[in-house]
Amino acid sequence: MSELKIKTMAEFLAEGQAPEVLFWVGCAGSFDDRAKKVTKAFAKLLHNAQVSFAVLGKEESCTGDPAKRSGNEFLFQMQAMANIEVLNAYEIKTIVTTCPHCFNTLKNEYPSLGGHYEVLHHTQFLKQLIENGRLSVSGGTFKGKRITYHDPCYLGRANEIYEAPRALIAKLDAELVEMKRCKRDALCCGAGGAQMFKEPEKGNKDINIERSAEALETKADIVAAACPFCNTMMNDGITQHNGSSAVKDVAQLIAEAKDL
């Protein structure tokens, strides 16, 4: 684990170099224990594919997504403009992120505030690396396993990225089993729109209980996620159902298949 070497943009700049991509780690990816594992897995894959990448480290700040979805447009735009100032100062061209909320905000909501970048979700980027022959994956440990994939709202419906994560799962030689609602009809995990940070309104059940029951219906060994919030919500739901399926990000599955 200790061999993981991560360089910041500041270090690249000090060496007079520019990385191929900026890895936007996100708040969950930096601080949440489950998400940190995804961050690490993805960083290892980038190393493995010999991608020159940088992170912002302490210069990274929340994109403002949860503030915007809460209705605090002020705080969102303050965050956005501050981030854009940093990103533009480093002349960032391409950003890759493991969080669909960061992805959506950077890609769709920053341009009109002056931030123009090519923004990729990590599943898109990994798919590109495989297609370009920079990363190779073979099934290995996942051969014959049942995997279901939960579409994050901000990757799926919000940006119509349904195929990239599925293409990665297909590389694992596993059996991809779809939930009864998937792709554009997928049910939210319950965390979007800043719900991650508050108690749900009163109802007859929590949304993640409903969704994780659907995931368990597939009898999948693994529930693949592509969003740190979905990851937490699905894991909590499955735990409450006493289910045995493991919840893992697509990047973790690829990294495990490669024994990284």
Binding site: L4, I6, T8, V25, C27, G29, S30, F31, D32, K36, T39, K40, A43, V55, L56, G57, K58, E60, S61, C62, P66, Q79, M196, F197
Partner: peptide, 15 residues
């Protein structure tokens, strides 16, 4: 600069 009460200085602790 994060929705949780963590310090920005700790953003690279995951490494």
């Amino acid at each position: 600069g994060a929705p949780w009460a963590f310090n920005a200085q700790d953003r690279l602790n995951w490494v």
